[in-house]
């Protein structure tokens, strides 16, 4: 790889710093994104955890929703964690009043699907086809209740789908950035590497 990949982290609200630190640890250059201009020149983007209804409102109030959506639809490798998964989805079973999504990942999600904070937990998951063990933290986590035909299920927890991928988009309902688990971020960086290897 010629230079360190520039990975955006949507920085309107939520667990931004933890993703930036992990990306740096893996040799990437994290770029905090709060405006449409900052989307230019990115190799990938992370939509972090936070309060999904808050991030949705800020995206729309400040004109960032459509440019972000266009970038993801244009093939930008994208990882959404927790609230980020909700933002990527094509629909929410239990939205906050007026809450919208980017509609770039063909799944339906349910928010806070395991219950309130007292049900938040750490757990070990089996990830992907190679069956790697991933340490996960679920914080008032959502789950995927419907996945389209193009969508691959990568992990389940308590019988529910908690990690999916489709093309350039990966969505997970847990927080690898809190447990120091690098598997998912390395997966994002591998998407960047294969995209760079494509003939221009």
């Amino acid at each position: 790889m010629s230079s360190a990949p520039r990975i955006g982290v949507l920085a309107l609200q939520g667990g931004v710093a933890e993703h930036a630190a992990m990306l740096q640890e893996l040799g990437a250059e994290p770029v905090l994104v709060k405006t449409a201009e900052q989307l230019a020149g990115l190799d990938a983007i992370v939509l972090p955890g936070g309060e999904s209804s808050t991030v949705d409102r800020l995206l729309r109030l400040f004109g960032l929703r459509d440019p972000l959506r266009d970038a993801v639809l244009g093939g930008l490798p994208t990882l959404g964690t927790c609230a980020g998964l909700i933002l990527l989805s094509s629909g929410i079973e239990d939205p906050a009043p007026g809450q919208q999504t980017l509609e770039v990942l063909d799944v339906t999600v349910a928010r806070n699907a395991f219950g309130t904070q007292t049900a938040s937990e750490e757990a070990a998951l089996t990830w992907g086809e190679d069956g790697a063990t991933v340490r996960a933290a679920f914080i008032r986590a959502p789950v995927v209740t419907r996945a389209g035909e193009s969508v691959t299920v990568l992990a389940r927890h308590r019988g529910e789908v908690v990690a999916v991928a489709s093309g350039n988009v990966v969505g997970i309902s847990f927080h690898p950035e809190l447990t120091g688990e690098t598997t998912v971020h390395r997966h994002l960086l591998s998407l960047v590497a294969s995209r760079r290897a494509l003939p221009v």
Binding site: A11, G14, G15, V16, G50, I139, L178
Partner: peptide, 8 residues
């Protein structure tokens, strides 16, 4: 972790 998600 929940407090981390409330940041900002």
């Amino acid at each position: 972790g929940l407090a981390d998600m409330l940041k900002g």
